[in-house]
Amino acid sequence: MKAPDFAYARPTVLSEVFDLLDGDGDVRLLAGGQSLVPSLNMRLSAPSLLVDINRLPGLSGIEARDGVVRIGALTRHGEIARSALIAERLPLLAMAAPHIAHAAIRNRGTFGGSIALADPAAEWPACCLALGATMVVASRAGERRVAAGDFFTGLFATALRRGEVLVAIEIASPPAGSVAHFSELARRRGDYAIVGLAAQVARAEDGAMDPRLAFFGVGDRPVLAEATRRVIAGGGGIADAQATLGRDLAPTGDAECAGATKLHLARVLLGRAMAALRTRGDA
């Protein structure tokens, strides 16, 4: 469990990163290192060059601007968990943060790193999907923006192209009256979830709900349950919604659970979320 040899660079400006990414061989960005370093030590990956982006200015921090909250890619999970701005504007993220691994990992691991890795059982990609986040991607050619729904393209696969760096995530504040819900089922606190649900739910005066339901741990990427959303928005009850969820999700099994068990558990989480939202009068 010792990493094979690799070259290491620690640039201090983004243009240097682009130069390094243009080089030959397997070049990987090192942010918090909480997934990458174990995979190196277990010799599951053997990049020729690690580009440490921790010294790049301007990639870290949380700020509100132009109606969106902008979270720098290098912002640590722990910073999000402790941010008053996040708690006020994006409570879904505040709810999810404590479920991410353990304190030491939350203090090193980064928001952007988790999203760029795109583990299908991770919390942040699902939250981004539920919140309709926008990924800000930089390259030598400039910046482009990718909607969360287009960003996660498969198992550990994203819309990031060679030469591109995820620099920030922008999330518009949900409309007034919108409420967040987060729940996950993990064998042990801090484990990746067997199944999880990140939801941002718009609610009308009359109590009608329009939920963006992002399930994770159910396939090769987080999944937005659109058919179920329509049933709920149309006034369907819990049983209707649970039945419909089978059209949105086709979970694959893992070592812990068969796919059918995951679908059952996703239905349980959905039912409990709907019951909780209906009895919640705070928003």
Binding site: R187, R188, D191, A255
Partner: peptide
């Protein structure tokens, strides 16, 4: 409740790492 060395039919251990082999932890 937690710990098991899982094997496939060919005698390969499937969960020989600290993420997939569940040691009991304080929170539970």
């Amino acid at each position: 409740l937690f710990e098991e060395c899982r094997y496939d039919g060919q005698g390969q251990m499937l969960n020989g790492n600290m993420a997939d082999y569940l040691v009991p932890m304080a929170a539970e």
